[in-house]
C-alpha cells in the first residue's frame, strides 16, 4: 500500500457517503414531550375587592404551530375552589372577563391565614396550591423631590420633574419581599376654545396616573435584613402642564405590597427569562411555581398605602 492508494481510497469513500446536511430534524417521536398542565394565576390580598383566578392552557412547542390569533387559551369548564381551611367556596367562570371570580365577602382574605386553591378540568391533571397571607408592613414616609432636566430633543429647554420615593422599616429576622406601586391624582384647569379659536369656558381635568419607576419596584430584604428600605424613584406623570393651563391639586399615593416569597420570585424569573430572550450564552431561566401538577403562581400580598399632597 502506498500513500496514493490511501488517498484514492478516502476520496472514493467520501464520494460514496456524500456530504448530507449537517442540520437535521430530530424525529419528533424521540423528543420527550411533557403532559399538558393547567396554568393557574391567582393573587390574593385582604384588600381585594374581587378574588379572581385565571385558568389557561399552555401551548406545545414541538408540532403544529398554533395559528389561533387569541393570545389567551382560557379554560372555561374548570372547577375552581378556594378554601381557608374551614370554608371552601367555588369560583364561577365569567365569560366577559375570561376568568373565575367571587366577591371577597364570600371568603374573606385574612392576614396570616393559609389558603388552598384547587382546580380540576377535563383532560388535565387536577392541581392544588397553597399560600399564606403575609403581615402588612407599614410604610413610614413618602419623600418627594424635584429635578430640573433637559427636554429630550429640544436643546436649551428644561423641565421640572417630580419624583416620589417610599421608605419603610424592614421587620428583622425574617425574609421579606415587597412590591411598591404608586399613582398620582392631579387636577388642572384648561380653557376650551371654539372653532373660531375663541375661549368658551374653563374645564377642570382630573387625571390619575401610575408612577413610572426607573428600576424594578420589586424588592427583597436579602442582605439588608431589619434596615430601613426604600423603593425605586417613581416619577409623577402629568406634573408638567402646559403653561397656558392652571395647575390644581396634586396628590401622590404610594402602596407597599408586602408579598410572599413566590410572588417575588415568580415575577423575578418571568422578567429574567424575558430579558435573557434567546441569548445563547445565558442559562435557561426556569420559572418557579407552587402549583402542584401545574404551572403558574398562587401568591398572597398585603397592602398599606401612604399619600402626600404636593399642592
Amino acid at each position: 500500500m502506498k500513500p496514493i492508494h490511501v488517498f484514492l481510497f478516502i476520496s472514493g469513500l467520501l464520494s460514496l457517503t456524500g456530504c448530507s446536511s449537517l442540520v437535521q430534524e430530530v424525529d419528533p417521536g424521540k423528543v420527550p414531550t411533557a403532559t399538558a398542565k393547567l396554568v393557574i394565576h391567582c393573587y390574593i390580598s385582604p384588600q381585594d375587592t374581587v378574588i379572581t383566578v385565571v385558568v389557561e392552557a399552555p401551548r406545545a412547542i414541538i408540532g403544529l404551530t398554533d395559528t389561533s390569533s387569541a393570545y389567551r387559551k382560557t379554560i372555561a369548564n374548570a372547577t375552581v375552589s378556594l378554601s381557608d381551611g374551614s370554608k371552601t367556596v367555588r369560583l364561577l367562570y365569567s365569560a366577559k372577563d375570561l376568568l373565575y371570580r367571587i366577591s371577597p365577602g364570600q371568603l374573606p382574605i385574612l392576614t396570616g391565614k393559609i389558603y388552598t386553591l384547587n382546580v380540576a378540568a377535563p383532560n388535565y391533571a387536577p392541581i392544588t396550591a397553597q399560600c399564606t397571607v403575609p403581615v402588612a408592613v407599614a410604610p413610614a414616609e413618602v419623600r418627594v423631590d424635584t429635578v430640573r432636566k433637559p427636554v429630550t430633543g429640544r436643546s436649551g429647554f428644561y423641565q421640572l420633574r417630580l419624583y416620589a420615593r417610599l421608605f419603610w422599616q424592614d421587620p428583622v429576622g425574617q425574609p421579606n419581599y415587597y412590591q411598591v406601586t404608586g399613582y398620582n391624582i392631579s387636577r388642572s384647569t384648561s380653557t376650551l376654545y371654539n372653532s373660531q379659536g375663541k375661549p368658551i369656558k374653563d374645564s377642570v381635568y382630573t387625571r390619575t396616573s401610575q408612577l413610572y419607576f426607573n428600576k424594578s419596584n420589586y424588592l427583597t430584604d436579602e442582605g439588608n435584613d431589619g434596615v430601613q428600605l426604600s423603593s425605586a424613584r417613581g416619577e409623577v406623570q402629568n406634573f408638567y402642564i402646559n403653561p397656558a393651563d392652571k395647575a390644581g391639586a396634586l396628590s401622590i399615593y404610594l402602596t407597599l405590597n408586602t408579598t410572599d416569597a413566590l410572588f417575588y420570585k415568580y415575577r423575578d424569573a418571568v422578567s429574567r427569562q424575558a430579558d435573557a430572550g434567546n441569548n445563547p450564552f445565558s442559562e435557561a431561566v426556569l420559572i418557579p411555581s407552587n402549583i402542584q401538577n401545574g404551572l403558574g403562581c398562587f401568591a398572597a400580598f398585603n397592602q398599606a398605602t401612604l399619600s402626600v399632597k404636593v399642592r
Binding site: P58, I61, R267
Partner: peptide, 10 residues
C-alpha cells in the same frame, strides 16, 4: 422548552 404559556404577575 416543553411548552409556552402566559405568565401573569400582579
Amino acid at each position: 422548552p416543553n411548552s409556552t404559556y402566559n405568565a401573569y404577575t400582579h
